[in-house]
Amino acid sequence: MPNNIATVLSRQDTWRGRSQRLPRRAITTGHNNLDLLLQGGWPISALTELIPQQPGIGELSLLLPTLKYYADNNQLCVWLDPPYQPYAPRLVSADIALDKLLVVRSKNHAEWLWAAEQSIRSGALLLAWTKQPPPRYADLRKLQLAAADSGNAAFLFSVPSALSAPSPAALRLELKGIEFNQLLLTVRKQRGVASGACLQLSLGEANTQRTNLALLPADRHRTYPIQQLNN
């Protein structure tokens, strides 16, 4: 329990009657429209829960600017139990220093929770993917409190079934892919704002260019029948 009044007042979630509210601290998401929707960007000192409808719709590319910001600041980015292996060439082309990324695999729920809390409290950016069974409310609250104390952003990727359960996260975003390269974000919970706001986000230009197979460099070491290449 913090006994120092200055520590209490410096916290973001302390409300003071007379004075104006402290400016909301946030870091930019890298997308202007999203920054507007989220009132400045991803909240820091808070847990953000992202709920993609299914993996692969662009939920991770949303965080690339944030990852780069933290890596440039010489802070570690911990990926806790990612569903697949991160692909290094893509991260390098986004200018993210690879030695600032740390992939952590936990063996059980206790380890998962411990590693998540430890990472948040040590000033690292946490990207955590939930495991089955989903973490309990009390566990997530632990992470939210850790984030509030540390002053860092923390991201949690949940499965769609988590939407029906309550969450202590300061921000909950549901992510849906509508069509190719189009992402629909729905705010499910945000402090001080009614939920339900939507935003359609385009993820870069769609490259639908097709290359003629015959124009590609052929393998010099083995010959293939032409009709096989063209079918």
Partner: peptide, 21 residues
């Protein structure tokens, strides 16, 4: 701080649990 975090994760979860791309 980063070094301390890596060390403590390492100590609790074991060296196999951590990796870097």
């Amino acid at each position: 701080q980063s070094c301390e975090l890596i060390d403590s994760l390492n100590a609790r979860l074991g060296i196999d649990a951590l990796s870097q791309p």
